[in-house]
Design a protein around this nucleic acid. Structure first.
Length: 419
RNA sequence: CGGGGCGUAGUAUACCGGUAGUACGUCUGCUUUGGGAGCAGAUAGACCGAGUUCGAUUCUCGGCGCCCCGACCA
């Protein structure tokens, strides 16, 4: 894409109301636009990143048998009342609204009850199980305090997957597969090294523990105790002598760190299936409640985490898997027709080879182009100029390492194909 | 929800009880062209409401909005 066609522009300074690094850089780069506290729009560049994350998550969920669907954001009060969770005294972050006839509705903060209700229409026999469904859907949470840029939002997209099993063993098997799928997601987005499977509170579901995936960053809101050797961690909320001995961990082997929760998984058991009546007939013809699990990844937060973890003092540094473009073609032709033609030719060659290229064809000075390129954080910068034309080689600079190399077109193409 | 802070051009900021200045941006022209260039000109602003006052952007009160600390966080 030609950068001159982008309606967004970079900013030299972040708005004074953005304090967190992730929001400052994403706003400056023109990736997101703040609508109100805790509510951001995705602009063209941001949407490209968003879609990259979504696709990675989608592929990993499909691999473990997840079937993609999309549920509604408007939810039925009656279903929630059956689970005892409509009351604001029980769940205080509801956004609620009404139909013209005064019927109350909720804006989904999770879809657990909704999908349980939905599945009643499709699951009736042990032959229908196990199964799993997921979606990328907006969640609305009326947070008392939105904060930390896009870490704690009032409207955000979550990948939420729900598993339905005949018995505990079947749930356990799926749960383990989900853990591996989550690991694969975090590895693919480049955060694997810094992300720990973390024991956390079971919350309101009656189970003792749940698991979170926590990525180390000083911007995180959570405190965890990590065991480097076992690549495990314990959230401060359940950190106790009892928990440690249960896990066979010794205090001396743990290190306290700040982290952000990028995923969470829960064994729901029959918490929703019993009150809502999601049952199946077993081989003996007896009714049994379906055993459920719930698995979430916050897409926005994962993007924010990548920004926090990889950015340097000049701007964003995208891991290749998330970058809006693979190559930033910095065109320093400055009115020189021959150089401009060369830039155009290079753009065409790369694009035809299937490489995503952002071509900075704007009529601005080199310094500004470099500064913007640093800010946008595209992995490989390829500079086209009088110099490159004379040398027959393009200057290629990696955003992450700063490593520079001079490559001919064919060398560049084979380098990019090798990815 | 408790505590604190803040609302001035598109952005960042300054000053002031007598209607606002700077920088960046944007627009025009000329020069420039490998790290946010120079000169000249132009554009554009006091969150809303009430009160005090001869006069309020400035002081007071209320509302709305934003940020931070804490609490909360399937």
């Amino acid at each position: 894409m030609r950068q001159s066609q982008l309606f967004t522009k970079t900013r030299r300074e972040a708005p004074s109301d953005e304090v967190s690094k992730n929001a400052q850089l994403l706003v400056r780069g023109g990736y997101i636009h703040k609508e109100m506290a805790g509510v951001y729009s995705y602009l063209p560049l941001g949407l490209r990143v968003f879609k990259k994350v979504e696709q990675i998550v989608r592929e990993e969920m499909n691999k473990i048998g997840g079937q993609e669907m999309v549920m509604t954001a408007l939810q039925d009060k009656e279903v929630w009342e059956k689970t005892g969770r409509w009351d604001d005294a029980v769940v205080d972050n509801w956004f609620k609204t009404k139909l013209k006839n005064d019927t109350e509705l909720g804006l989904a903060y999770t879809h657990e009850p909704a999908i349980t209700q939905l599945m009643k229409g499709y699951v009736s026999s042990y032959r229908d199980l196990p199964t799993a469904a997921y979606q990328f859907q907006l969640k609305f949470r009326n947070e008392l305090r939105a904060k930390s840029g896009i870490f704690r939002l009032r409207q955000f997209t979550m990948k939420d997957l729900y598993s339905f099993s005949k018995n505990q063993k079947e749930l356990d098997t799926f749960y383990e597969a989900a853990i591996e799928a989550y690991r694969a997601v975090f590895n693919r987005v480049g955060l694997g090294d810094k992300t720990y499977l973390t024991l956390a509170s079971g919350g309101s579901f009656g189970t003792k523990f749940s698991h979170e995936f926590q990525t180390l960053t000083s911007a995180g809101e959570d405190t965890i105790y990590i065991h480097e050797g076992r690549k495990l961690a314990v959230n401060k909320e359940v950190y106790s002598d009892e928990t440690l001995s249960e896990l066979g961990l010794r205090k001396e082997d743990l290190r306290e760190e700040k982290a952000v929760e990028v995923g969470n998984i829960y064994k729901l058991g029959t918490f929703y299936s019993e009150p809502l009546g999601l049952t199946f007939k077993d081989e003996a013809g007896a009714n049994q409640p379906v055993i459920m699990g719930s698995y979430g990844i916050g897409i926005d937060r994962l993007i924010g985490t990548a920004v926090e973890v990889f950015a340097d003092d000049k701007g964003i540094v995208w891991p290749e898997a998330l970058a809006p473009f693979r190559v930033h073609l910095v065109d320093l032709s400055a009115g020189n027709e021959e150089v401009q033609k060369d830039a155009q030719e290079l753009y065409r060659e790369l694009t035809e080879a299937g490489v995503e290229v952002l071509w900075d064809d704007r009529d601005v000075r080199a310094g500004e182009k470099f500064a913007d390129s640093d800010l946008l954080g595209i992995p490989l910068r390829v500079i086209v100029s009088q110099k490159s034309l004379e040398a027959g080689r393009y200057e290629c600079v990696e955003r992450a390492s700063g490593t520079a190399a001079h490559k001919t077109l064919s060398e560049l193409l084979s380098h990019l194909r090798a990815d």
